[in-house]
Amino acid sequence: MRLAGGFRCWARRSDWGQPEADTAAAMLLLMKLVLAVIQDADAAALMRALSEQHFEATKLASTGGFLREGNTTLMIGVDDQRLDTLRTLIGQTCRSRTRLVPARGLVSESEGGVAQEPVEVPVGGAVIFVLGVEDFVKV
């Protein structure tokens, strides 16, 4: 539903029920919140691709994973009809790759020693969480 100024307003899901086809409520789209955790190296390219496809995203700096490196978490609101397009776009932009890391950071002292050679580990790609949205209002 479009309001003055081009803003969309979404009702609470519990208010939606099963609307009649001829009511304004039938025009409401079910929304999802996508949380995409990606490697920092892929963030700029993905943000550009999202913008080109008219997706709006909020970018958050985050840290985690077993390498304890910085990554980027994107919060993206999307209607059900465009969810597959978004997943494809993320998959095409955020590729997995391998990286050499010092083995001493990967082996615990209780394992009796530290290997001297670097270890190749997979990095990159994306972890995508898709959540149902109970309420979404853009003002």
Rank of each mutant, 00 (worst) to 15 (best):
M1W: 04
R2M: 11
A4F: 08
G6P: 03
R13G: 00
E20M: 05
E20G: 08
A21F: 08
M27W: 07
L28C: 07
L28T: 01
L28P: 02
L33T: 05
L35W: 10
L35K: 10
I38S: 00
D40L: 09
A41I: 03
D42W: 00
A43Y: 00
A43V: 01
A44E: 14
A45L: 06
L46C: 03
M47H: 07
R48L: 13
R48T: 14
A49Y: 00
L50Y: 02
L50C: 08
S51A: 15
Q53F: 09
Q53N: 13
H54A: 09
H54F: 07
H54N: 09
T58L: 06
T58D: 04
K59W: 08
L60F: 15
A61V: 12
S62F: 00
N71D: 06
T72F: 05
M75Y: 05
D79P: 02
D79A: 02
D79Q: 09
Q81W: 10
L83K: 02
D84Q: 13
L86T: 01
L86W: 01
L86H: 03
T88Y: 08
Q92K: 14
T93Q: 06
R95E: 05
L100C: 11
L100S: 07
V101F: 04
P102C: 05
R104E: 12
G105I: 11
L106I: 10
L106P: 03
L106F: 07
S108E: 13
E109V: 09
E111R: 13
E111A: 11
G113Y: 07
G113D: 08
V114Q: 15
A115T: 12
A115G: 08
A115Q: 13
Q116A: 11
Q116W: 06
P118V: 01
V119Y: 00
V119S: 02
E120A: 14
V121D: 07
P122S: 02
V123G: 01
V127K: 09
V127I: 11
V127G: 03
V127N: 06
F129L: 10
V130H: 01
V130D: 05
V130W: 01
G132I: 07
D135P: 01
F136E: 02
K138F: 11
K138L: 14
V139I: 12
V139A: 12
